[in-house]
Amino acid sequence: MSNSNTTAPLLEIKNVSKYFGSVIALQDVSAFVRAGEVTCLLGDNGAGKSTLIKVLSGVHKASEGEYLFDGVQQDFDSPREALELGIATVYQDLAMIPLMSIWRNFFLGSEPTTGWGPFKHLDSKFAKETTKNEMAKMGIDIRDPDQTVGTLSGGERQAVAIARAVYFGAKALILDEPTAALGVKQAGVVLKYILQAKSKGIGVIFITHNPQHAYPVGDHFVILRRGQVYGDFSKEDIPLEQLVQMMAGGADLEVLKHELKEAAQEGGADADAYAETADEIEAELIEMGKKPEEQGES
């Protein structure tokens, strides 16, 4: 771990372990994020990512180890306590309520009110305007804040959730696989929001199984495997190829390349872009010393 940046970590876990009965879900895991940086937690299915998110967000208590926020030891009984300190978690599926409008979702649980006594009511005008403005800051022009969230695309939903966390003063933002269910373009859009949150001085913990998504935005990379830290790197210490190899030996890249090629053959507006990216990936794979058609194994 190189410490070119010497600021103290915003959020840090030290030697955290989590047991469920006889099952060891996490063993001796340490990671940290500084304000204005992005730490990526990478791991394949079953690596312990979900458990780690729940420990970070206050759903689970660690069986062993320390949880430090702003240098102060924490012991959360509920996610609400973590949220009050400014640790916001955006879950992949649980972020939004599809049948409710965007502005109602945005302010759910923290509704602005106006008036007094028995006439105190929702300040829906303020809520709608704020929602529209905050989304505009993220680069999304929502046509109508009364639209239900169910009408938004997956990427836009993540954007609303991130915008909400930022608006309500999150200092640390934990993102649970925000790009997992998204297409290439939308994943790119979400990565842009992550960088925006970072530039606002928020410490972002980005959980993903996809090194291609992690590398462009991450400052630190913590690789989890079978509940343990397999590697912990600063960006300058590890090139993408090595990160990919550590994750899955290039298997993901192969699959991605194939899918891109298929998409390019289908035609459509982005066919050229797909083909171009597929070629780049192929070049990378060759550079990594693999034959183009060879399926990597970990």
């Binding site: 996610p79 649980l94 409710m100 759910l108």
Partner: peptide, 14 residues
């Protein structure tokens, strides 16, 4: 609305 729409999501935001 939030409780009926998705109780877990609603609880997560307080």
């Amino acid at each position: 609305f939030g409780t009926g729409g998705d109780a877990n999501a609603a609880r997560n935001v307080g």
